[in-house]
Simulated scan of single mutants.
Amino acid sequence: MAGKFEVYEDKAGKYRFRLKAGNGEIIAVGEAYETKASALKGVESVKNNAAEAKVVDMTAAAA
């Protein structure tokens, strides 16, 4: 099963999204948005930018 984005309303009435892997594990979460439309734009931004994003290791163990 493929992963999926879920858009939901939190307890404070803000809209959020989370990305779930095929096994149902949450692997990423978005910030709180004032509107559902803004949350959906956040999903699209992640979808558009993630494929080209570099991984930057910020740990002290980076070589």
Rank of each mutant, 00 (worst) to 15 (best):
V43A: 09
F17H: 14
A32E: 02
T35I: 02
T35L: 02
D10V: 01
A53P: 04
R18G: 01
E9R: 15
K36N: 14
K36M: 14
S38D: 13
A51D: 11
E25F: 02
A21S: 14
Y15A: 08
E6T: 15
A50P: 02
Y33E: 08
G24Y: 07
V55S: 08
I27F: 02
K11F: 05
G24R: 10
G42F: 02
A62C: 04
A21K: 13
Y8L: 13
Y33K: 08
A37E: 15
A28V: 01
N48A: 14
M1R: 10
A53Q: 13
N49S: 13
G24N: 13
T35P: 01
M58W: 07
L19A: 11
A32V: 00
A12M: 01
E44F: 04
K14H: 08
K4D: 09
Y33N: 06
N48P: 00
K47G: 02
Y15I: 07
G24I: 09
N48C: 00
D10T: 00
A12I: 00
E31D: 13
T59H: 02
F17Q: 08
A63E: 11
A62S: 12
E31I: 02
A50M: 12
E34D: 14
A63H: 03
N48T: 10
R18W: 03
A62M: 05
A12Q: 03
G13F: 03
K14T: 01
E6M: 12
A37F: 08
K47A: 07
G42L: 02
F17E: 05
I27H: 03
M1L: 07
E34Q: 08
E52H: 13
A50F: 14
V56M: 08
A51Q: 12
A37D: 15
A21I: 03
Y33C: 09
G30Y: 03
A50L: 14
A39E: 09
N48W: 00
A32K: 06
N48R: 14
A2M: 05
G24S: 11
K54H: 07
A2R: 08
K41F: 04
E25L: 09
E6H: 12
F5H: 12
Y15P: 05
A63I: 03
K54A: 11
V55T: 10
I27R: 08
G22M: 02
A12S: 08
K47E: 10
A60L: 06
K14S: 04
V46D: 06
A2D: 07
A53S: 15
A37W: 07
N23V: 06
E31M: 05
A51E: 14
G42W: 05
G13R: 01
K14Y: 05
V46G: 06
A63T: 03
Y15K: 07
N49R: 14
A12P: 00
M1T: 09
A32Y: 01
K41G: 05
S45W: 12
